[in-house]
């Protein structure tokens, strides 16, 4: 088991944004987290990535408990993420934005970096190379030296994914990466995500586009009102009565 979410509960005042949520994500798989708006999907992502401390329960990665760690520590353990409202640096070029992802691989300390000494120069070069290839995979290579300021939303999402991948995570959390993308961009994104397990990246994604999820994920977890409604393969979820009434059903009416 790559990621184990055990009995997670998050309480905001009198409201439980997550309650008794437990499920696992297999190493090298693509899993999805779906559910209506306000179901607690992003809250659960925040718990896994350290941005939200759980009120109860724990999260472990490769058998080690990571819940309670600060986000930057979680990132150092190899969990990358994107944000529902993309968070990028508009002042940097696309290439520089992606190179920020490789921050944890840069060696040599601040003075080594300033003076361009051995390990700093070497890791900087590697960061540049890996950022270049991530931009290539994301289809943004042509704009690499442009400022990220004028980038349309679809490409901003791809840029965020490229940055997260440049940190070479073993688990990648994607928060609604397909929203705001046009049909061709969604197709490219699906292609990009499908290749990740082969690169050693386990994927957990939040998505509203059900068709996109069904064709991509091996496992789907459904949240509703903060609670786990069901976990299973796409086929199982499609035929699950409680899911159909609570979520899919509502969309078909």
């Amino acid at each position: 088991m790559k990621l184990a979410i055990e009995d997670i509960g998050v309480r905001f005042g009198g409201l439980w944004a997550n309650r008794n949520v437990s499920f696992g994500v297999q190493e090298g798989s693509i899993s999805a987290l779906i559910g209506p708006n306000g179901a607690g999907k992003t809250t659960l992502f925040n718990v896994v990535s350290g941005f939200q401390a759980p009120t109860q329960g724990k999260v472990s990665l490769d058998g080690e408990v990571i819940s309670g760690l600060r986000p930057e520590k979680v990132a150092l353990r190899g969990i990358g993420r994107t944000f529902q409202l993309p968070e990028i640096c508009h002042d940097l070029t696309l290439l520089e934005n992606v190179m920020v992802g490789a921050y944890r691989h840069i060696r040599g300390g601040i003075f080594g970096q300033m003076l361009g000494l051995g390990p700093a120069a070497k890791t900087e070069r590697e960061a540049r190379e890996s950022a270049e290839s991530e931009l290539e995979r994301a289809g943004l290579a042509k704009q690499r030296n442009q400022s990220a300021r004028a980038l349309p939303l679809g490409q901003v999402r791809l840029l965020e994914i490229a940055r997260a991948l440049a940190s070479q995570p073993s688990l990648l959390l994607l928060d609604e990466s397909a929203s705001g993308l046009n049909a061709r961009e969604v197709e490219n994104l699906a292609h990009l995500i499908r290749q990740l397990p082969a690169r050693g990246v386990t994927v957990l994604l939040i998505e509203h586009n059900v068709r996109f999820v069904m064709q991509l994920a091996e496992q789907i977890a459904v949240l509703d009102h903060g609670q786990l409604l069901s976990v299973g393969t796409p086929a199982e979820i499609r035929n699950d009565e409680s899911v159909i009434t609570a979520y899919l059903g509502r969309r078909h009416h």
Binding site: I88, D91, L92, V100, Y103, Q113, R163
Partner: peptide, 24 residues
Amino acid sequence: SSYGRAMRTTRESEAAARSVGIDV
């Protein structure tokens, strides 16, 4: 340098910086 990119990212989005392991 990488440190400088981390500084600028921190200025614009601490969440983005922390998500890639920068101790802001």
